[in-house]
């Protein structure tokens, strides 16, 4: 290292703007995610499932050449509602907790960055990586549909992709809340898995039991069900493809008739609210967290 005279004329370094730091972290996150085994595994699994579901659902439809809101979408929906939240929650849960466990979090925070920038950067980067992962799966699935069915509606497919990406970002936010308060990845992943179970199965099954036992009225059932982001996602996809929720029986028809054109926006609103509020909660908790 070269030694020299005392340098006093060196201009003092200035920190980067928040946006630049967020982008730096996001790029690093995308890079780390893409080169990680987790990402490759998830992308592969999702692609295989998406293509498989498309193939299977098209198998029986050769004679008619018509697929309404048939099994393609229904099958994809089911698969998406299982896999995508799991992917996103796991990714989110591992994010901050992983840095903390490896001890890298401290080193990053010793740089001229704020905690919020780090959090947002990681969120953005993971979200982009997830979106890329989903795009590949859906792209292959769309290829199968184009080759085998042809007539399947591209606009509907695009809508499904858009909603799924929104779902992934929302679940990522929820995962980050878990991550921020967890010391270890294993704990964070466990809690994330629990949240997944709760959102995917427990809440719906509980609500079904409630509907039977307490004879919930349609409006009560619909409102409570809609608050679950996964149900909001499902209803959003169906209402966009069918222009109505009539597929979902009395409660769906009630919703379509009561809310009409505002219904899709309500459902998107529920998803956005989950995403924004979760991310805000993650931000606040991260700021307040004493131990790094």
């Amino acid at each position: 290292m070269s030694s020299g005279a005392v340098q006093t004329a060196v201009p003092l370094p200035r920190p980067c703007s928040a946006a630049r730091n967020v982008i730096s972290f996001a790029r690093r996150e995308v890079r780390d995610a893409v080169s990680s085994r987790w990402f490759v595994l998830c992308t592969g699994a999702f692609a295989v499932l998406a293509v498989g579901v498309s193939f299977m659902s098209l198998a029986g439809s050769g004679s008619s050449g018509f697929a309404g809101f048939g099994r393609t979408t229904a099958g994809l929906l089911n698969m998406i509602m299982l896999i995508v939240p799991l992917m996103a929650l796991a990714a989110g849960a591992g994010s901050i907790a992983g840095e903390r466990e490896r001890g890298t979090l401290l080193y990053l925070l010793a740089q001229p960055v704020s905690r919020l920038e780090l959090l947002l950067g990681k969120y953005l980067g993971l979200g982009i990586a997830l979106t890329g992962s989903l795009c590949i799966g859906f792209g292959l699935s769309a290829g199968v549909l184009a080759a085998k069915a042809g007539g399947a509606d591209a606009a509907a497919m695009l809508m499904l992709v858009a909603f799924t990406c929104l779902l992934a970002w929302v679940m990522l936010s929820v995962g980050m809340v878990v991550s921020v308060v967890s010391r270890k990845v294993a704990v964070a992943t466990g809690v994330g898995l629990f949240v997944w179970l709760a959102l995917v199965f427990v809440s719906d099954l509980g609500l079904m039991a409630g509907a039977i036992v307490f004879k919930l009225r349609v409006q009560e059932l619909f409102i409570v069900a809609m608050l679950n982001p996964l149900q909001a996602f499902k209803m959003g996809v169906i209402v966009q493809m069918n222009a109505s929720l009539d597929v979902l029986g009395p409660a769906g028809m009630y919703a379509s008739q009561t809310y009409g054109r505002t219904l899709p926006w309500m459902l998107v609103g529920v998803l956005l609210a989950w995403g924004v509020l979760s991310l805000a909660a993650a931000g606040v908790l991260f700021q307040r967290k004493k131990s790094i």
Binding site: P15, R20, R27, R31, Y107, Q111, V113
Partner: peptide, 29 residues
Amino acid sequence: RSLVGYVPQELAFHDDTRLGSAMSFFAGI
């Protein structure tokens, strides 16, 4: 923190990251 260069007890950075990549990341920051 922009006035401070910090050296930890042991550098903790993602093990998979390449040295050049880490360096350009911090150059950006």
